[in-house]
Design a protein around this nucleic acid. Sequence first.
DNA 1: GACTAAGCGAGACGGTACGTCAAGTCTTGTC
DNA 2: GACAAGACTTGACGTACCGTCTCGCTTAGTC
Lengths: 192, 192, 192, 192
Amino acid sequence: MNEHRTGPVRSAAAREAILAATARLFQRHGYDHLTIEGIAKEAGVGKQTIYRWWPSRGALIADCLVDGRLFSVNFVVPDTGDLLRDVEEWLNSMLAIVDTPDGAAIMRSLVAAAADDTGVGNHLSVSLGVDRELADRLAVGIRDGQLPEGTPVEVLGQAILGAMIMQALGRKNEQTMPMQSLVRFLLRPVAG
Amino acid sequence: MNEHRTGPVRSAAAREAILAATARLFQRHGYDHLTIEGIAKEAGVGKQTIYRWWPSRGALIADCLVDGRLFSVNFVVPDTGDLLRDVEEWLNSMLAIVDTPDGAAIMRSLVAAAADDTGVGNHLSVSLGVDRELADRLAVGIRDGQLPEGTPVEVLGQAILGAMIMQALGRKNEQTMPMQSLVRFLLRPVAG
Amino acid sequence: MNEHRTGPVRSAAAREAILAATARLFQRHGYDHLTIEGIAKEAGVGKQTIYRWWPSRGALIADCLVDGRLFSVNFVVPDTGDLLRDVEEWLNSMLAIVDTPDGAAIMRSLVAAAADDTGVGNHLSVSLGVDRELADRLAVGIRDGQLPEGTPVEVLGQAILGAMIMQALGRKNEQTMPMQSLVRFLLRPVAG
Amino acid sequence: MNEHRTGPVRSAAAREAILAATARLFQRHGYDHLTIEGIAKEAGVGKQTIYRWWPSRGALIADCLVDGRLFSVNFVVPDTGDLLRDVEEWLNSMLAIVDTPDGAAIMRSLVAAAADDTGVGNHLSVSLGVDRELADRLAVGIRDGQLPEGTPVEVLGQAILGAMIMQALGRKNEQTMPMQSLVRFLLRPVAG
DNA sequence: GACTAAGCGAGACGGTACGTCAAGTCTTGTC
DNA sequence: GACAAGACTTGACGTACCGTCTCGCTTAGTC
């Protein structure tokens, strides 16, 4: 009746080593150049152990992403009552990454990963704080009257992130100014 | 004075065959799965002929992009005087692609190409009519008083495109509604 | 203390298939025209498996040579007491190969292989029975008084083989007569 | 009726440059590694000019060989009346080449060329002074009574050269002693 | 003196093979 | 039975040369 399984169970150490190696190599060399063999060697692990638990390279990145292993910062949106200032807080933490050559490269790599892996694609804007934190704060802004009724908060957040990504893809080096003016335009005071 | 080079000249037929094959295979199988060997075979051409003129897979896609070989439509923004309607015209031509499973896949592939090739990245928003057509139309909108002074037209266009790309990366199937409400929100009438 | 290696072990089947394919293709098409890719395809094996175990095309031929896969005959020198007859026995088995268009071509190919690979060069005269069988039989001839004291048996054997090879390189079709008279001259009775 | 040809004739300068480049590259890098493109570049000549006049890489080597461009020495056999001394004279000029690492490598390359090109094969022993000079001298030896009647002079010469080539193929470094004892054995005084 | 017609340097072209890298699967022996 | 190690087939990489084929120039007769 009871389903007894013998033998060792999934090694937590291996999982940890694999994800850590993945994050390290991803940041260092980008998504292309990220290879299963390279991860296995870096992690001191057999290839089969990776294939046993993850279906693809992208799935590893997705796991790193939800574990927050790819960025050292937290993408939270504070709520001080001042909508513009709060959103700019979040924006600045993004710009600190994206307005840097290495950070922009990591972001492009992440986009590449999102493009070929559903898991990464699904979690990308969530992990960057857009779908929850930012959207929620915008919703509060509507209640406060700082944004018009009917503001499409989810897609608005994605537009802001999308603009940043477009700039990174276009190898624009100076994102801070344009992104700030975009956000100020979008969140401009509701006309009285 | 004039710099004379002798010898055979670049074969226009080969160039045409290569770009046509590239576009065909890109649309059919996506950016990953796009191989130089595959293109060479499809085009009936030696690999070296490709490497002689293009430094990378991405450069081929960039050339296809600027030649307009990847999409059958033109991304123009009309000017009827009605800003919202004109922008929605452009938006609909984008949605006709992106709100389709195959079209969304092509768009993701294009993003992947942009992520690893500077040339594609640079031309992406241009080729989709954002940096010129759309930005110009928005600028006219400012002059007409339909948009506030100081509207950051370039980055605003990229935000719209970026939102669509984020939806495609997130494998959202229904883009039409959210994108239309985003555009209506962004171009909402200036309060009198 | 004991050096334990884990993991899969070298596939004997692959080794066999590779060497068999090499011998087959070598005999059929010659040393130039012998390609690693061709061997891999013929053997139903990945190229990497060949490169993993052999450093070069020549090393494959060397292995075939020491395994006796290139010739169906054995180059032994009998010892009936009659030196000339015994050596002619060996000579005839060589001539059966070399005085044939195909056989001469194989011999030329083998020389080409010996010219660019140390392994083949080292084993060539051994494998044709010259350095051991023939030299030993000549040494016996000295003891029997059929050859003068001080006869340099090793280099004498190589001279006989070398003469045959020179004829093959010179595309001489009729080797039997000249080689027989050479051997008779070299082994002419010691004057009493 | 008369077949009039107009236009420039074959360029002697090009022929010279090509053969000089061939000899240079052959000596420097060996027969494999000798490429038509390399020769063309080294000679400052178009590839077609080579293909127009020579059918193959081997034919170029054959031409270099008959022009005496591959060795700086002349392989003549003097006639002082002392057969052994005369033949050793020739032998020493060969050993000066062959008993040297570079010289042995060139000889092996020459053998490789002979193995895949009929022209080289045909002229090899001629160009090294074996078929004419050495054979003739041996014939004189017969007339002088220094060699027995019926000595097969042509194949005997090829045996001597062949022994040297076998040593070179076997990567034997010390050829001088064995070759000298071989020659002394072969030309040992006719028993009175 | 214009007009062929070839030789020539240069090098693009369709191919074949090179030797390397990584994919994903399978096998072996240890824990 | 999970694991580290690593051999296996497959397929693509980017490079080197092959031998053929234009190009535009220069040079030698012929008309």
